[in-house]
């Protein structure tokens, strides 16, 4: 079927089988291979992208359901010579080893900090109506949809905390 996808500020015309996941459309049809296919079942988070400001698993949605939506992948967040704050912090804090989960971690964390800013509670938030802090516990809980099999979690959490602090101070 013919459809248009708006990715990283650019509109693309595509002709896709309706079965095509958003992830496959991004990787195989648009050449945006930053988003990774880990499990392809929504369990690992490597495919996380930001759609209409929300982080989602791009493997568990159909490309044809996202016509007109604003889609952001890791390529849209920063570039090697112009890293986003989270990308820079992941480098500084060794937030990866093999790097396969990293684009998903970065997209997820980018949107997750927005969720904290909006005051969304999490499963570890003590008081559902109080202001939320980007504590280690909160970050770990909120990032549980992104697995890192190299287990770089301490570096990942440090990187995210640093950016949360920078943004709070800005």
């Amino acid at each position: 079927m013919q459809l248009q996808l708006d990715v990283n500020g650019e509109r693309h015309a595509l002709d896709l089988d309706p079965r095509t996941s958003l992830l496959d459309a991004l990787r195989d049809h648009l050449g945006l291979t930053g988003s990774k296919k880990g499990c392809d079942h929504g369990q690992c988070g490597a495919c996380t992208v930001i759609v209409e400001g929300r982080r989602i698993n791009s493997c568990l949605t159909l490309a044809c359901m996202h016509e007109g939506d604003e889609i952001t992948t890791v390529e849209g967040l920063g570039a090697p010579d112009d890293l986003s704050p989270l990308q820079r912090a992941f480098v500084e804090h060794d937030g990866y080893q093999c790097g396969y989960c990293t684009p998903g971690q970065i997209c997820s964390a980018t949107a997750m900090l927005g969720e904290i800013e909006k005051g969304w509670p999490s499963n570890v938030t003590e008081d559902l109506e109080a202001q939320v802090e980007a504590s280690i516990e909160e970050i770990s809980e909120r990032m549980s949809g992104n697995l890192c099999r190299c287990s770089c979690y301490p570096g990942i959490v440090d990187a995210i905390r640093q950016v949360a602090k920078e943004e709070a101070g800005a």
Partner: peptide
């Protein structure tokens, strides 16, 4: 959150941030 907190709690105990967004 105020009137039916058990519902907020149950939702937050399920799945991941990405899945709850969908």
């Amino acid at each position: 959150r105020r009137g039916w907190p058990v519902l907020s709690r149950a939702l937050l105990a399920g799945a991941s941030g990405q899945l709850r967004n969908k």
